[in-house]
Amino acid sequence: QAKEDFKKMMEEAKFNPRATFSEFAAKHAKDSRFKAIEKMKDREALFNEF
């Protein structure tokens, strides 16, 4: 479920497709859906799949 929420957050964010993961992470670090994925490498993997 956390992965689905994370993907939904990325869809809602409508970020620049050229944005890096660190830019995305800095902007969304306080979002509970971002925090729900415990490991940063897992967050980055989901970001890269998107």
Rank of each mutant, 00 (worst) to 15 (best):
A45L: 14
D5W: 00
A45C: 11
K30Q: 15
N48F: 04
F34S: 06
K39W: 02
A45T: 14
A19T: 15
S22I: 07
K39A: 09
A13R: 11
F21Y: 10
L46T: 06
D5Q: 08
T20D: 12
F15G: 14
S22H: 09
E11L: 13
E44K: 11
E23I: 00
S22Q: 15
A26V: 11
A19K: 06
A2C: 03
F47P: 04
K27I: 14
A2G: 07
T20V: 05
A25P: 00
F47Q: 03
H28N: 08
D5F: 01
E4L: 07
S22P: 12
A36R: 10
A13L: 06
E38W: 01
D5M: 04
A36E: 05
A29E: 15
D31K: 00
F24Y: 01
E4M: 04
A26H: 10
D31Q: 00
K3S: 08
F24P: 02
E38T: 14
M9P: 01
K41N: 13
D31W: 00
F15R: 06
K8T: 07
K3A: 08
N48M: 05
K7M: 13
M10A: 07
N48E: 14
Q1D: 07
R43L: 04
A45P: 02
F47N: 03
K27R: 11
F50A: 04
E49M: 15
S22G: 14
S22C: 10
A25C: 14
P17W: 08
F6N: 05
M9Y: 00
K39D: 09
L46K: 05
K30S: 14
A26E: 13
K14P: 11
F6H: 02
Q1F: 06
K35A: 13
R18A: 15
L46N: 06
A29M: 11
A29L: 08
H28S: 03
K8W: 01
F24I: 05
A29R: 10
Q1N: 12
E23M: 04
F15M: 12
K27S: 09
E4N: 03
F50M: 07
F47E: 05
E38I: 05
Q1V: 07
K27F: 14
M9W: 00
D5R: 05
E11D: 11
E4R: 09
K27A: 15
K3M: 11
K7V: 09
E23F: 00
N16A: 11
D42H: 03
F15S: 13
L46P: 03
A19R: 07
F15H: 13
S22V: 13
K30F: 08
T20A: 07
K30M: 12
D31F: 00
F15N: 07
A13Q: 08
K41C: 09
M40Y: 06
A13S: 15
N48T: 09
F21P: 02
F34I: 03
E11R: 10
N16Q: 15
R43G: 02
K35Q: 14
A25V: 11
F21E: 06
R43S: 01
K41W: 04
K39R: 12
I37L: 06
F21N: 05
L46C: 07
A2N: 12
F34W: 08
F24W: 05
A25N: 05
E49N: 13
A29K: 13
N16R: 07
K27L: 15
K27M: 14
E4Q: 07
E23N: 05
I37G: 04
K3F: 10
F47V: 04
N16V: 06
A25K: 06
T20L: 04
M40A: 09
F24L: 03
A29F: 07
K35P: 02
P17Y: 13
E12G: 07
T20S: 13
E49W: 04
M9G: 02
F21M: 04
K3R: 13
L46Q: 04
E11S: 08
D5P: 01
K3C: 00
E11M: 14
K27V: 11
R43N: 00
E49A: 10
F34V: 03
K3V: 12
H28G: 02
F24K: 02
S22L: 11
E38N: 07
H28L: 01
M9S: 03
I37F: 05
M9V: 01
H28V: 15
K39V: 08
A2V: 14
I37D: 04
K41S: 13
K27E: 12
K39S: 15
I37S: 02
K14S: 14
K30N: 14
P17D: 11
A13I: 07
E38P: 14
K8C: 07
A2P: 07
A19Y: 11
M10I: 12
M10F: 09
F47C: 03
A29I: 05
S32Y: 09
D5N: 11
E12S: 06
K30T: 15
T20N: 08
E38M: 07
A25M: 07
K8P: 01
S32L: 09
E4T: 08
K39T: 10
A2Y: 09
A19N: 11
F47D: 06
M10V: 14
R43V: 03
K30C: 14
A2E: 14
M40E: 13
M40T: 10
M9A: 01
F24H: 02
A13M: 09
S32K: 14
K30A: 15
E4S: 07
D42I: 04
P17H: 10
